[in-house]
């Protein structure tokens, strides 16, 4: 078969709803795009452990402490599943981690914003995880088998991440005056970064059309973003919270909540590494990696001596 015929057969398989599995022929561009997407997704989970991890020791009740630790742990687990999916495409985890630590790889910019108060734990759970779940629910139907399987597992596990956040926001929005102020402040700071999580406008998203044709994505950035706003804005307002977007309004004709324009300068600045916490986040990951080097070496040395595996 010629490359052209292979491509036709590949696209026909995807059109029939078949999953592409490791070992199957795939266009180089499909492989490349998937490694980029999946490893970014994995890095996002790992870096995403940091802003919440910083508050585990300060959680105000035993129940919240246990829940937050379990959530941060899950994020590590989800990063683990995702690195696995990328590995099936020929990328090694060592390479991917190296790309993250040297600043070559990207991850979700939302994690480059600081978590400043306890109420951020509620807001991150509801909004950041809520947005992630929308994206992940879509990706569970992705055409690449290992990515889709990782997503099925992640989606099931993440339901509690969002709900525990929502539970907190509900409580604080109806709580004491300081709690109300804290949760409003959290919304003010997180709303826009969360909307940016869905990525640039479709018109500025060069890979989107191809990813949709190849069954990696089934919805565009703007479609997902709109779905998220429709789902979230009324609930936040119902709780008496004020969304920090004076232009936000309900449009009866389209049945959509229409938001104001995102600050795309800020978006690109943070993506390119100049966000409030980019350096801090990478430094934390590098420290963990470097401080753990002797540990990983020791276990290798032990395995070589005693298990005959090396």
């Amino acid at each position: 078969m010629s490359e052209q015929e292979k491509l036709q057969e590949f696209e026909a398989r995807i059109a029939r709803g078949e999953k592409i599995e490791p070992g199957d022929w795939m266009p180089e561009e499909y492989r490349k795009q998937l490694i980029r997407m999946i490893s970014q997704h994995a890095h996002s989970e790992i870096v995403g452990m940091l802003p919440e991890g910083a508050w585990i020791t300060r959680a105000p009740t035993l129940r919240r402490k246990i829940t937050l630790l379990a959530k941060v742990q899950d994020e590590g687990g989800h990063g683990q599943y995702l690195y696995h999916a990328a590995e099936t495409l020929g990328a090694t985890r060592a390479e991917m981690i190296d790309a993250l630590l040297t600043g070559k790889a990207k991850y979700a910019s939302v994690f480059n914003y600081p978590s400043l108060t306890w109420a951020d734990m509620g807001m991150i759970g509801w909004l950041v995880d809520g947005a992630a779940i929308m994206n992940q629910t879509m990706l569970a139907h992705c055409s690449y088998g290992p990515y889709s399987r990782a997503m099925v597992r992640i989606c099931t596990e993440e339901t509690f991440h969002k709900k525990q956040g929502m539970e907190q926001v509900i409580k604080y929005a109806r709580g004491t005056p300081p709690q109300k102020a804290m949760v409003q402040d959290a919304l003010n700071r997180w709303w826009w970064p969360v909307l940016m999580m869905f990525g640039p406008h479709d018109s500025n998203s060069p890979n989107s059309a191809q990813l949709i044709r190849w069954g990696v994505k089934t919805k565009t950035n703007d479609e997902l973003r709109q779905e998220f706003i429709n789902k979230t804005a009324p609930d936040l307002q119902l709780l008496g919270l004020k969304i920090p977007d004076p232009a936000l309004h309900y449009d009866e004709a389209s049945d959509n909540w229409i938001s104001g324009e995102i600050d795309w300068d800020e978006f690109w600045r943070v993506v390119k590494g100049d966000g409030p916490c980019n350096k801090e986040r990478l430094a934390a990951r590098r420290d963990a990696h470097e401080n753990g080097a002797w540990v990983r070496e020791a276990l290798n040395a032990y395995a070589e001596r005693f298990e005959g595996e090396g």
Binding site: G53, I56, T57, V72, G76, Y83, D287, G292, V295
Partner: peptide
Amino acid sequence: SEWAGHAPIL
């Protein structure tokens, strides 16, 4: 719990 996110390997 202080190790969460900082351990030697995932």
